[in-house]
């Protein structure tokens, strides 16, 4: 069967360095010009296209990339990924409203908080077998949301309002409806994340994760410190989720516990699986489609989640490895991270 992923990778591998740079730049240019489009076809019925592109699409892409490290690369089923997103967003919300720090200063703090939470959760949970991990992480996601809901000091059910926008840079002002600027900012974060994941995947860590995903016991018996690498995957995934949370809060300027339900975790998981676990490009594609589509198909309004669920079932039955499955070809991983 024709495999788009292999076809694309084939072109990539046959090309020399200059061509690769050109391809990469072209792809970035296309991505960057997305918010300049906006004909009637792309318009979504309720929200404006530019805003949909920032949220959910760009945020979903970031989160899906992060969750992909955990699920796609290492095979750890995390059903509470929203927790890290929430922690990032609340860090932004609290520090942004209560201190004078701006978004860029809070970003590393939010990431650190999410990583720390990942560590706290990971150390007990990653000793357990996969199915238990799923339920523990799911519980963790709920705990974070319930805590936010019941702590009145951080807004309780009302959430946090009046979160500041990021400061103006190069004379560009982040106003609420300057979707293009937000999108380009998020695009930079997406590129950084892709760079990080590609770097890691072709090296030692990538192989360790791969061996854990395929046969953890064999990996352990072959001397792979599986626990250490699982923690790393978990914490790195958390860091990306935390970053997404900070960015999200700096865009919507209002957060409440309702934004961080289990449905978010499941949606992001669906992005990863739908697109193709373990393959960055597949995951991005999945996040773009699932981020954009539910808004676009509002015309079947009430039934759109139902359709969404049915699509997941069909998809798993027809293409269980996703739209762009992970590498299946007989070729060693590329020698160096050329991205």
């Amino acid at each position: 069967m024709f495999n788009l992923r292999d076809w694309g990778a084939g072109i990539w591998e046959r090309s020399g360095r200059p061509v690769r740079v050109l391809i990469a730049l072209g792809a970035i240019a296309i991505a960057a010009s997305l918010p300049l489009l906006g004909g009637t076809f792309l318009k979504t019925p309720i929200a404006d296209y530019g805003s949909v592109l920032v949220f959910p699409v760009a945020i979903f892409v970031i989160m899906a990339l992060g969750l992909n490290i955990v699920i796609g690369k290492s095979g750890l089923l995390d059903l509470g990924y929203v927790a890290f997103f929430a922690i990032g967003a609340y860090t932004m919300g609290i520090l942004g409203t209560k201190t004078g720090l701006n978004s860029w200063e809070i970003l590393p703090i939010g990431i650190a908080m999410a990583m720390f939470a990942g560590l706290i959760l990971g150390v007990p949970a990653l000793r357990l077998r996969g199915d238990y991990l799923a339920i523990i992480t799911l519980g963790f996601g709920e705990i974070v949301r319930i805590t936010a809901l019941n702590l009145n000091s951080i807004g309780g059910a009302n959430g946090i309002v009046g979160i500041p926008t990021p400061p103006t840079i190069f004379g560009l002002e982040y106003t609420f409806d300057n979707h293009r600027l937000y999108f380009w900012t998020f695009l930079i974060i997406i590129l950084l994340t892709i760079w990080m994941i590609r770097r890691l995947s072709v090296r030692r860590a990538g192989r360790a994760w791969e061996s854990i995903r395929q046969d953890e016991d064999a990996a352990e018996l072959m001397g792979v410190p599986t626990f250490k690498y699982k923690i790393w995957a978990f914490v790195l995934g958390a860091s990306v989720g935390g970053a997404a949370g900070v960015l999200y809060a700096s865009k919507t300027l209002f957060i409440s516990p309702d934004n961080f339900t289990l449905q978010v975790s499941i949606l992001i998981l669906a992005c990863v699986v739908f697109g193709g676990m373990g393959n960055i490009w597949g995951v991005i594609l999945g996040a773009v489609i699932l981020g954009y589509l539910p808004d676009r198909i509002r015309f079947i309004s009430d039934a759109r989640l139902l359709v969404f669920g049915a699509v997941l079932v069909l998809m798993m039955n027809l293409r269980p490895d996703g739209l762009l499955p992970r590498k299946k070809r007989e070729k060693a991983l590329p020698e160096k991270g050329q991205s």
Binding site: I71, L77, I266, L312, D321
Partner: peptide, 29 residues
């Protein structure tokens, strides 16, 4: 509907779970 095909094919471990989540959404919605 949701599991048999996947089970008989013995595909990746997460696929039946995602399929189950999908069914869960369909039924609840």
């Amino acid at each position: 509907v949701a599991y048999r095909r996947l089970r008989n094919r013995g595909s990746n471990k997460l696929a039946p779970l995602i399929s189950a989540i999908g069914m869960s959404i369909v039924l609840a919605e």
